[in-house]
Simulated assay, not measured.
Amino acid sequence: MQKHWDKLWEKIVETDKQFDDYLQNSGLSASGMKKTKILVKAWNDLKKLAEEFDQFVTPVESVTNILPWETSQFAGKWKFWKEYLQEQHGQVMRSRSEKMALEYLAMLAEDSEEKACKIIDFSCYLRAKSFILPPQKKEDNNKLVNNTEDGTW
């Protein structure tokens, strides 16, 4: 789409120059110039609309993302998570949402790569669209604290 928009924009600029040149050098009479005012206004309105529309067509530059853990294990796990989102939920992660997701995951994982990988695994297991913390293992309340068998009191 961007390629087509660029061609259209080039044609608008070229036509605008030709139109201005025509008006400057056509030798139209005063009454002829008066009649072209409607055409000039319509042309200027069209250019204004094209300029306003340009913001929707010209893509935003993506941001650079840095993984919180630069290991091949985490890089693979992160790639898996992005592919999972696309396959399971039809979501393509763009650069800004990826940046925020990485920061949020690092915060949830308390800067632990191992915990981050477990969060990703658990979230995929539950077919979630976002990160879900796995349940924490509870201490066994029936366990004897002062067990003589292991030598602690």
Rank of each mutant, 00 (worst) to 15 (best):
A106Q: 13
Q91P: 00
K138G: 03
C117Q: 12
S29L: 05
K138Y: 06
N65F: 02
D54W: 13
L105S: 06
G151M: 04
C117D: 05
M1D: 09
V92D: 13
E52N: 10
N25M: 10
S97F: 11
N147A: 01
R94P: 00
H4Q: 15
E10K: 15
L39Y: 07
E103M: 10
S26I: 05
K35Q: 14
G90M: 09
P68A: 01
E139N: 02
L28A: 03
I120K: 03
E70G: 02
F74G: 04
A128N: 13
M33F: 05
E14C: 07
D54Q: 15
W153I: 03
F80L: 11
L8S: 07
S95K: 04
V57G: 01
Q88D: 09
W9D: 11
R127G: 10
K115Y: 11
Y104D: 11
E149C: 00
D21C: 03
F19N: 05
D45R: 11
Q18N: 04
L39D: 09
L126R: 11
E110V: 12
P68V: 01
M100L: 13
P68T: 04
Q86K: 08
Q73R: 07
L39H: 09
P135E: 09
N147Y: 01
N65Y: 06
K47L: 15
G76E: 06
K77R: 07
G151D: 03
E14A: 13
K7G: 14
E14K: 14
S31P: 00
L108A: 12
T152A: 00
E51F: 10
Q136A: 11
P68K: 03
V145G: 00
L126Q: 10
Q86S: 11
K34R: 13
C124S: 09
W81E: 01
E87F: 07
E10A: 14
S95G: 06
V60Q: 14
S130M: 08
F56C: 11
P135K: 06
S62V: 11
E87G: 03
G90I: 07
D16E: 15
P134C: 08
E110S: 15
K129W: 01
A50P: 02
L28T: 00
A101F: 06
G151Y: 04
S97R: 14
L23V: 08
Y84R: 01
F122C: 07
V92K: 13
Q91G: 00
Y22A: 08
Q18H: 03
S31E: 12
I119F: 13
H4N: 15
K41P: 00
V63P: 05
E87W: 05
V63M: 06
I38G: 15
P68L: 01
Q2V: 13
W153C: 00
G76S: 09
K35F: 12
E70Y: 01
W9S: 12
R96D: 03
C117H: 02
V92G: 08
E51C: 06
F53I: 13
S72R: 02
Q91H: 07
D6G: 02
D20Q: 09
F56V: 10
W5T: 02
W43S: 00
Q136M: 08
L105P: 09
E114F: 01
Q55A: 08
L23P: 03
E87Y: 08
T64C: 07
S26E: 04
H89C: 05
K143S: 01
L85S: 04
W69V: 01
F122S: 02
T15C: 03
E103T: 10
K35W: 10
W78S: 08
K48V: 01
F53S: 13
